[in-house]
């Protein structure tokens, strides 16, 4: 069954057509990757799903429910989690507070009980804290930095904290925008392992945009290739990799060397 479905999404800015007629379905319990040359519309697609852009045509469905007219916070509360390409943590806060913010939609404390901090508010804070410690910090191995301000952490750890924050939401579908961009080999391997565990242990469906073809080929169950705002190929990684249209797309973008490196070098 599809958790997330996009039906005929078209999005244009002025004269530029960023997405035209994109149909895409994400099956429950899979890792689905969206790839494509620079400027193919991948991030626009993510922003349409999150609700930052409203498409001129088409619908976004989460478990059959139409999200197209909902604002981003509402979508989050229905189970749509995401991370950003260039880390979007709250830099003034500690790791713990950042991750707790992920659990915002699952909490209920209102202003009055918050200010008195009695009973329900206190219990809820303790419960969420305990869950985060047990499930998220343990899993992502960041319990030793819980009190650190995120701004001071190295890049790889910040990426991990952002993943932790999204997991604390317990989303139905987790959208990762370039989860391993800018990481070294070791960090990439860690992250790939975490993403696989998110699917297998947490049972969360993952939709990611990624440039690192090696990682995409290794961990994805399905790949969709986007070019000039259109889906030009979909299928299992091994099949997509050999699709002549896909090779053509990367050639057409002039990205020949990176294509060779990505398709042959790293996955070999």
């Amino acid at each position: 069954m599809s958790v997330l479905e996009l039906e005929g999404i078209s999005l244009g800015f002025g004269g530029v057509q960023a997405l035209s007629g994109v149909d895409l379905a994400v099956e429950e319990g899979t890792i689905t990757a969206v790839i494509g040359p620079n400027g193919a519309g991948k991030t626009s697609l993510f922003n349409v799903i999150s609700g930052f852009y409203r498409p001129q045509q088409g619908r976004v469905l989460l478990e059959g429910r139409n999200l197209t007219r909902l604002r981003p916070p509402r979508r989050a509360s229905l189970g749509l989690g995401r991370t950003f390409q260039n880390i979007a943590l709250f830099r003034g806060m500690t790791v713990l507070d950042n991750v707790k913010l992920g659990a915002h939609v699952r909490m209920r404390t209102g202003v009055f009980s918050a200010m008195w901090y009695l009973g329900a508010a206190r219990r809820e804070e303790a419960r969420v804290r305990e869950e985060i410690e047990r499930e998220v910090f343990d899993f992502l191995e960041i319990d030793h930095i819980r009190r650190h301000p995120v701004a001071a952490l190295p890049y790889g750890l910040q990426k991990r904290v952002e993943l932790a924050r999204a997991l604390a939401m317990r989303p139905k579908i987790l959208m990762l925008d370039e989860p391993v961009a800018g990481m070294n080999r070791e960090e990439k391997e860690d992250m790939a392992r975490f993403i696989l565990d998110v699917k297998e242990e947490w049972g969360i469906t993952v939709l990611m945009v990624e440039h690192d073809m090696g990682m995409v080929m290794d961990i994805s169950d399905r790949v969709h290739v986007l070019n000039f705002g259109q889906v030009i190929a979909s299928g299992e990684p091994a099949v997509v990799q050999k699709n002549p249209g896909v090779i053509q797309a990367y050639l057409g973008s002039g990205d020949v060397n990176s294509l060779r490196e990505r398709l042959m070098g790293e996955s070999a």
Partner: peptide, 15 residues
């Protein structure tokens, strides 16, 4: 604080 620091992230967290 989330709204102060980065309002876009705040809204994808459901705020």
């Amino acid at each position: 604080i989330a709204i102060r620091d980065r309002d876009i992230s705040a809204s994808v967290l459901g705020i």
